[in-house]
Amino acid sequence: MKSPEIVLSLNEIMFYFTRAAVGAGLSFGLAEDFGRSSIWIAASGLDPARITSKTLKSLDEAQSSLCASQTEIGAKTVLTPSGGKQLSALFAGPSVCDWILETKEVSDKTQHFVVEKVDHPFLIAAAVGALKSGNWEICWQDSGGTLCNVLTGQNGNWKTSLEGNEIFQQHSPSDVSIKSAESSLFSSKKWIEKNTFSEKNSQDVLESGVPLYESWPIIHKLFSRCLVASTEESHKSGAGAGLVDTD
């Protein structure tokens, strides 16, 4: 088994990933939401760099858009990317979360949300999971036409129809549907055999850290854009503490 490039704490995941998103062109508020999604991925025992780096690159290379229009048609709300591009999950995820928080105050549970042409569907699930706001079912079709699902539960638990490396391979633009689920669904026959992530994964991560593999340099490179080059002047006058200490 190959060695990780680095093992980070969850606090470092938040620090580096939030700023990597800023480095890729996201505003700080959306970048913080991305940081939280990255922590949710990491706390599940998955490599957040491997899952998110392509999305950040898509944004950085202007292949994905941060512009969309939202329309309501009966119980359905649709988020459609503007300008013919695919929609960045880094924008769509927080939009879905905002809709969930608004929907919680509405009694009509038939309401659902559709995000069209999302560049990385799994990151919508990560945003919803990180929100920790009850049971939601997130569905999309992968590039081969297979239906993929993620079901979020209480206490940060979640299940998915994806197996093994499939989670890391969800990079094809797809329409994603988000709808409220009954809490009983989590233990239903349909979901009983599915890949499950629980609070225990999170405890394990706190005891062992988050290993990041070959995609870490991409995150770090984007993060580095948030740093300011050190000059002789800023070295001397821009920071506290004495340059010489012979006290």
Binding site: L227, V228, S230, A239
Partner: peptide
């Protein structure tokens, strides 16, 4: 306020005189 690339040291700059 910014992070310097030098050991991520937090620094306090002059917007109209310093880079960053």
């Amino acid at each position: 306020w910014y992070y310097s690339e030098e050991k991520l040291e937090p620094r306090f700059g002059d917007r109209y005189a310093d880079p960053g």
